[in-house]
Design a protein around this nucleic acid. Structure first.
Length: 345
DNA sequence: CGGTTTTGACCCGCGC
DNA sequence: GCGCGGGTCAAAACCG
């Protein structure tokens, strides 16, 4: 019975710890989610789950001590327990702060590395894409964005009047390169969003067809994407995104189970068939301010109640999937029921 | 039955 | 003006 009391206190301690530690972590995730993309929630999960597991583990010796006191020592043990919990809480909080600090440093170095990589890829891409002859205006428009969107400011008034909408869209063009199996003919890039294919064309400069997609939330969401295999390397799919989503991904969980994924989600976890190697993904934002755009895309979203709601739900689902947690929860609840019954007597 | 994909037709800008 | 080529539309087919 006392053992169950300890369990229930662990249970509440766990939630207290969770509610204390989560906001700081989430805020941190919000600061860096632009660079870390969708991975941030996963480390938040693992961090908290590990911490909770550790806290449970650390308290197990007390159970044996408490069980010796049985009935008349209950009040005393609860007091001791409270003191120990406060102590433990302080310790865990300190540890959490340290971890947060480490994480911040890690995220900063990650961001720096990513920007370096982006610069490098932009350089090589500009060299590569400026060499072939450009016939179509739409493609040259993309290249204008490669040259850090100079055309937007330097373009003539006539042009801007003629195609104002296009200019706006061009300002938000980004590209993603996804490595897939060459035998995989489907032009599917799983990026967490749902797309509706509305056309396919064989272009002149590339034997492989180009597929045109609109966001499934269209017309409320104006985002489009073009997907085509690279001329140089048939294993590489080039996805060109136009515009910004004004909503959350329908299911970010689905995005992690695809054959080829955007962002740096671990490549080997759930891609049994199609991926021939590690998925190399580079978000080459071609607009004037690539980093700014990435931040703008992420920052307002992480602060929005939808994201918070999603993270809470994600957290809850992760917890319920954890057998240790469910076992502890069941034990705690049953323990609570038994203890209250015995107190009533 | 509703949503998605396919695919030929159409539109539009550009170069000649 | 005409042809070319990229982008889009929309009806039919397909699918769960």
């Amino acid at each position: 019975m006392v053992l169950h009391l300890f369990n229930i206190s662990q249970f509440f301690f766990f939630f207290f710890f969770l509610s204390w530690s989560i906001p700081s972590n989430f805020q941190l995730a919000g600061e860096h989610i632009g660079s870390a993309a969708m991975n941030s929630s996963s480390w938040v999960d693992s961090l908290d789950l590990n911490a909770s597991a550790r806290s449970l583990q650390l308290e197990t010796p007390k159970e044996t001590n408490g069980s010796n006191l049985v009935v008349f020592g209950r009040k005393l043990s609860v007091k001791e327990e409270t003191g120990a919990l406060v102590e433990e809480l302080n310790r865990v909080h300190e540890e959490n702060a340290k971890l947060t600090q480490m994480l911040t440093a890690m995220c900063e170095s990650y961001t720096a590395l990513q920007s370096q990589l982006r610069d490098l890829m932009n350089k090589t891409n500009v060299e590569k894409e400026l060499s072939p002859t450009r016939k179509r205006k739409s493609e040259s428009g993309n290249n204008d964005n490669v040259v850090v969107g100079n055309s937007e400011s330097s373009s003539t008034d006539e042009e801007s009047i003629r195609k104002p909408r296009e200019e706006i869209i061009k300002a938000k063009i980004s590209r993603a390169y996804v490595r897939t199996d060459a035998s995989d003919t489907s032009l599917v890039v799983k990026d967490g969003y749902q797309w509706r294919k509305y056309g396919q064309k064989v272009t002149r400069d590339n034997p492989s067809p180009r597929a045109y997609f609109k966001c499934s939330f269209a017309p409320s969401c104006p985002v489009k994407k073009k997907v085509q295999r690279s001329v140089d390397d048939q294993c590489v799919i080039v996805a060109t995104y136009e515009g910004e989503h004004n909503h959350l991904p329908p299911s970010q969980m689905e995005a992690t189970s695809g054959s080829s994924r955007l962002s740096s989600v671990s490549a080997g976890s759930a891609a049994p068939v199609k991926s021939s190697g590690p998925t190399i993904t580079l978000d080459l934002t071609k607009s004037k301010s690539g980093d700014e755009e990435a931040r703008n895309q992420s920052k307002p979203k992480i602060d929005s109640p939808e994201i918070k709601q999603y993270l809470v739900e994600h957290m809850a689902s992760s917890l319920t999937k954890d057998p240790n947690f469910t076992a502890a929860l069941a034990a705690a609840i049953s323990g609570r029921m038994f203890s209250t019954k015995s107190i009533e007597r």
